[in-house]
């Protein structure tokens, strides 16, 4: 298994799309005291399988990474598992956020939003709802920019990723 070069580890797990499978997978991390930073689960192009993308916000030692992969692979409902090398994959994350924005602040906000390729989803009297699909690090930066305005509510999906072509 390739050792990742970034400060995070992405595991991509194909599982049977059945009740209880997520608990089995996440239980294995919790038993080992490993925190999951983010988790994305959804059916794949085959309805009987789901793809789980696990983002661990640490770079695991290759020994413990192999160990976790081997143990996850032992779960009966896990069909396939591998670590994605961040250097050889394309990742994206979705953030939707409601931010405080008076009418006078909106031009600057939207200007910045355009630069990073985000969208305005909804406009209220004193706030705006925005979305952004980008790499997690771009989203991190944009989130800290927004904090000056005042974040009302925010949800990020966590990383999803595919192999580079």
């Amino acid at each position: 298994m390739k050792k990742t070069q970034a400060n995070y580890t992405i595991l991509v797990i194909t599982v049977e799309n059945k009740f209880g499978v997520l608990a089995r997978v996440s239980g294995l991390f919790s038993r080992r005291g490993v925190n999951i930073k983010s988790l994305a689960v959804a059916p794949t192009d085959k309805a009987e399988f789901s793809r789980i993308t696990v983002d661990l916000d640490i770079e695991l030692e290759s020994v413990s990474l192999d160990q976790i992969i081997n143990q996850l692979d032992k779960l009966i409902n896990v069909v396939e598992i591998r670590a994605l090398d961040p250097a050889e994959s394309v990742e994206r994350e979705l953030m939707i956020v409601t931010v405080e924005a008076e009418a006078s602040q909106r031009d600057e906000l939207v200007d910045h939003l355009d630069k990073v390729g985000g969208k305005v989803l909804n406009i209220g009297t004193e706030s705006m709802m925005l979305s952004l699909v980008e790499t997690s690090s771009v989203i991190d930066d944009f989130e800290s920019f927004l904090s000056d305005y005042g974040i009302v509510e925010l949800q990020r999906t966590g990383r999803v990723a595919l192999d580079s072509l």
Partner: peptide, 11 residues
């Protein structure tokens, strides 16, 4: 027979 045992304790 269990790949998770190989290298678990000693490489």
């Amino acid at each position: 027979i269990d790949p998770a045992e190989i290298g678990k304790v000693r490489k």
